[in-house]
C-alpha cells in the first residue's frame, strides 16, 4: 500500500513538472532542457531553509517560487533572444551550471553527499508525515499548478503563446511584444517547477544533486511530448504512464541491475516510436518540431533581418 502511495506521490510531482514545462514546450514552442535545474532550485531552497533557518513550509514554498522565478529571469532574459537551437544550448549550459554548483559548493549544499535529515513538515500546526498525508498535499499542490496553468492557457495570454509558437513575425505585426511574453512564460514555468522540488525535498527528506541532472530534464520533456504537447491533460496522462511503466517492470522479475537499463531503453524506444507514428503525443494537438513549413518561413525573415546587421 505504501508503495502504491509512493508511486502516486511521484506521479503528482511529475505532473507539476510536466504541466509547467508544457507551458513552454507545448504552448510556446520553445524547448528548454533546464527544467530539472529549476526543480533542483526549488528542492534546495526548501531544504536549506528548513534545515538552517527552520522556517515554516509555506514560507519555504514561497521563497522557492521566488528563487526559481529569479533564476528564470536571469537565464531567460538574455537567452530567449537566441533562436531555437541556440536557446536549447543556453538552457543546457544553465542546467550544467546548476548541477555543478549543487555538486561542488560543499559547505553550502553538502556537495555530492546531499542534504540529509530535512525536518518534518508542518502546516498550521498539522504534521504531515505519513504517505497518505503527503499524497493529499502533493495532490493539492498539483491541482493548484494545473489550475494556474489551465487558466493561463485558456486566457488571451495563452492565445498569445500559441501565436508565438506558430509565427513570431505575425504576432509582432499584431502589436505584441514577443520577447517579453517569452520571458514571462519562462519565469512562470520555472516558478511552477520549483513547487515540485519543494514537495520532493520534504517528502524524501534527503536530496542530492543526482536527482536534478540533464537526464531528469529529458525525462520531463519525454513526459510532455509523449503525453501530448499543448495539452495539459496529456501531461497528467504522460506523467502517470512514464512513472508507472518502469514500476511494472519490477513485477516481471528482472534483476535490478538489468531493470535500470531496461528503463532507459524503454524511454528511448517510446520517444522514437511516438515521434514516428504519433508526434503530437497521446492527447496533444501540436506535433512538436513538425511545423517545418512555418520554420522555413521564419528562417526567411531571419535571413532578411540578418542582412540588415
Amino acid at each position: 500500500m505504501e508503495y502504491l502511495l509512493h508511486i502516486l506521490i511521484l506521479i503528482c510531482i511529475y505532473i507539476i513538472l510536466a504541466v509547467s514545462l508544457n507551458l513552454l514546450v507545448g504552448y510556446t514552442g520553445i524547448l528548454s532542457i533546464a527544467h530539472a535545474a529549476f526543480y533542483g532550485v526549488g528542492a534546495y531552497v526548501a531544504a536549506l531553509m528548513a534545515l538552517r533557518l527552520e522556517t515554516p513550509f509555506l514560507l519555504n514554498l514561497v521563497l522557492a517560487l521566488i528563487a526559481a522565478g529569479a533564476f528564470g529571469a536571469i537565464v531567460g532574459i538574455p537567452s530567449l533572444r537566441l533562436r531555437d537551437d541556440y536557446f536549447i544550448i543556453a538552457t543546457f549550459a544553465f542546467q550544467i551550471i546548476i548541477f555543478s554548483i549543487l555538486n561542488n559548493l560543499v559547505s553550502f549544499t553538502g556537495g555530492p553527499l546531499g542534504l540529509p535529515g530535512i525536518p518534518q513538515l508542518e502546516i498550521f500546526g498539522l504534521t504531515i508525515s505519513t504517505h497518505i498525508e503527503f499524497l493529499i498535499l502533493a495532490c493539492v499542490l498539483a491541482a493548484l499548478v494545473y489550475r494556474t496553468a489551465s487558466r493561463i492557457v485558456k486566457s488571451p495570454f495563452g492565445r498569445l503563446l500559441k501565436a508565438i509558437r506558430e509565427d513570431e513575425v505575425f504576432t509582432q505585426a499584431a502589436g505584441r511584444n514577443v520577447a517579453s511574453a517569452k520571458v514571462k512564460v519562462f519565469i512562470i514555468s520555472a516558478s511552477l517547477a520549483s513547487i515540485a522540488g519543494v514537495i520532493y525535498a520534504t517528502y524524501i527528506t534527503y536530496i542530492d544533486p543526482t536527482s536534478f541532472t540533464l537526464m531528469e530534464s529529458i525525462f520531463i520533456i519525454s513526459i510532455v511530448i509523449i503525453g501530448g504537447a499543448a495539452n495539459l491533460k496529456g501531461s497528467i496522462l504522460g506523467a502517470a504512464f512514464l512513472v508507472a511503466l518502469p514500476e511494472l517492470l519490477r513485477f516481471i522479475g528482472l534483476p535490478s541491475s538489468v531493470a535500470a537499463n531496461v528503463r532507459q531503453i524503454l524511454y528511448g524506444a517510446m520517444l522514437v516510436i511516438m515521434m514516428m507514428w504519433r508526434p503530437q503525443g497521446f492527447l496533444g494537438e501540436y506535433a512538436f518540431g513538425k511545423n517545418s513549413g512555418d520554420r522555413s518561413q521564419k528562417a526567411e525573415v531571419r535571413t532578411n533581418r540578418g542582412n540588415d546587421a
Binding site: 506558430e166 505575425f170 501540436y286 526567411e300
Partner: peptide, 8 residues
C-alpha cells in the same frame, strides 16, 4: 507571403 497563425 501571407502570415497567419495557421494552427489556431
Amino acid at each position: 507571403d501571407l502570415r497567419l497563425i495557421r494552427q489556431i
